[in-house]
């Protein structure tokens, strides 16, 4: 019996080694650098230097941008996912491929292209000028950055919601109609609660990369307002201050863990109510 369970665990070994090497060890490195100075002595000064109004604003700004991007993604993705899940199986496959299609291209190239689209002399403004509109100033604004986030991370919202909706038993919807619910009530009291797990993993998968992104804000925001990812990147790439960079990453990780815990708490509670 014991032998068998060991054998059963064996296939997990590669992943275990992988996660120790590439997840646990780097985390320990981050913690080590965050709590040491340049000479490797223990210090909390890195965190002390973060306690300024400027850094607080960067954290707040990043959280706001990520939050807005997540909400917009959710609002766009839910109807799309619902629509896809209601189509013929064959059409579903095609539509899913279409959702994934942009992800076949490199993330950096996609963002760089948005720069060419949104510029004052860019594609969009040129096109608008033909019909006598504009020019509208779009690049280097917070709207452009949020657009970049929504565009890049939207598939991560659509996919899990679609998965949970397509697993939803249509008989439950019929039952709710038989019991006299109108379609709005069916949506809010049956469909939405049953797809909550998809929504929550979608929110996680959009919020986390949004709050830590660095490339989008540099290209679409003109490097004029930093998000937290930009600040971290600069510490490692140009400022060569691993200690401060690690300290910021450390704080960011804690923030993300906190918000995820809160999210999951909501998920469990409400989920319990539905069941």
């Amino acid at each position: 019996m014991k032998k068998r369970s060991l054998l059963g665990k064996a296939p997990a070994a590669p992943y275990l080694v992988w996660s120790v090497l590439f997840i646990i060890a780097p985390l320990l490195f981050v913690a080590y650098y965050a709590f040491t100075d340049k000479d490797g002595n223990f210090t909390t000064a890195n965190f002390g230097s973060l306690a300024t109004a400027e850094y607080a604003e960067i954290f707040l700004r990043s959280a706001c941008f990520a939050f807005l991007a997540t909400v917009i993604c959710l609002v766009i993705a839910y109807p799309v996912a619902y629509y896809i899940s209601k189509t013929q199986p064959r059409t579903q496959k095609i539509l899913m491929v279409l959702v994934m299609l942009p992800m076949w291209m490199n993330f950096l190239i996609r963002t760089y292209s948005w720069m060419a689209i949104l510029e004052d002399t860019g594609l969009l403004n040129t096109a608008l000028s033909y019909i006598g509109l504009g020019p509208y100033h779009m690049i280097n604004t917070s709207g452009a950055v949020i657009l970049g986030m929504v565009y890049n991370f939207l598939p991560y919202m659509i996919l899990p919601i679609y998965t949970s909706l397509s697993k939803l038993d249509p008989r439950l919807v019929e039952a709710s109609a038989d019991l006299g619910c109108n379609s709005a009530r069916t949506l809010f009291h049956v469909i939405l609660p049953l797809s909550r797990s998809g929504v929550i993993s979608g929110i996680t998968m959009v919020f986390v990369p949004s709050i830590s992104t660095f490339y989008i804000s540099q290209k679409l925001g003109g490097g004029k307002f930093d998000l937290i990812g930009d600040t971290i990147e600069r510490q490692f790439q140009t400022a060569y201050n691993y200690n401060l960079g690690s300290a910021i990453s450390f704080v960011l990780m804690i923030l993300i863990i906190l918000s995820m815990t809160v999210m999951n708490r909501f998920g469990e509670e409400e989920g319990g109510m539905v069941a």
């Binding site: 604003e57 707040l60 706001c64 807005l68 917070s142 949020i146 004029k224 600040t231």
Partner: peptide, 12 residues
């Protein structure tokens, strides 16, 4: 770089 810039308060 972190200096609060011309960014509008719309986001907040």
């Amino acid at each position: 770089k972190v200096e609060s810039s011309t960014l509008g308060s719309g986001v907040y």
